[in-house]
């Protein structure tokens, strides 16, 4: 009996001490979008708007760069790409959005009289609703400044009123990216 107890006392810890060594490996961040780039092509110019946040959820705010000003009345062909530059190798999230287009939509919001944005007619998911990676931007009146807000929504309600026209108000879902670009129309 005594021996049995001793054996039990010794064996049980061994059985359960399944080793989980503390590997000192850093997390390869897969969930983060670090870089949103919107490109506007029109009137012979290419304007690149970039928001880059290389510390992910860290305290540093995204670094926003805008390569130039828009020209009033010009129609620009726009497109937006998403990257995760923290992943190794760098991950292009745009392709993932295209693959899961039913679950994603990109919304654009212009403050003031900056102009008007409409989704490109061919940029549709398998159910015929817009994805929003491609759009047309008609620049507004000269001398206005304001903000272009680009929002990537995950699992939006694409059939809610106004959502297919690009209005975010009824879209629900949750926000995967939301960036602000300062815009000037000359």
């Amino acid at each position: 009996m005594k021996n049995l107890k001793l054996i039990a006392l010794l064996v049980i810890p061994v059985i359960f001490s399944t080793s989980c060594s503390n590997e000192d490996t850093p997390v390869n961040e897969e969930e983060v979008i670090t870089t949103v780039t919107t490109t506007l092509v029109g009137g012979g110019q290419t304007i690149t708007l970039t928001s880059r946040d290389l510390d992910g959820d860290g305290p540093n705010a995204p670094v926003v760069t805008v390569s130039g000003n828009l020209v009033a009345g010009t129609t620009y062909t726009g497109s937006t790409t998403f990257l995760n530059e923290l992943a190794d190798p760098i991950e292009d999230i745009t392709t993932e959005i295209v693959e899961e287009s039913l679950d994603h939509q990109i919304f654009y919001f212009l403050s003031g009289a900056l102009g008007n944005i409409t989704y490109s007619a061919t940029d549709l998911d398998s159910e015929g609703n817009p994805i929003g990676l491609h759009f047309n931007f008609v620049a507004g009146t000269s001398g206005t400044t304001g903000t272009l807000t680009v929002t990537l929504r995950h699992l939006p309600n694409k059939t809610a009123p106004g959502v297919s026209e690009g209005s975010i108000t009824n879209a629900d879902g949750n926000t995967d990216a939301e960036v602000y670009f300062p815009i000037t129309v000359n």
Binding site: I33, R52, D53, A61, P62, T151, T175, A177, E178
Partner: peptide, 9 residues
């Protein structure tokens, strides 16, 4: 608040 690329938290 902190602003990240996902917006403000």
């Amino acid at each position: 608040f902190e602003t990240t690329i996902r917006g403000a938290f």
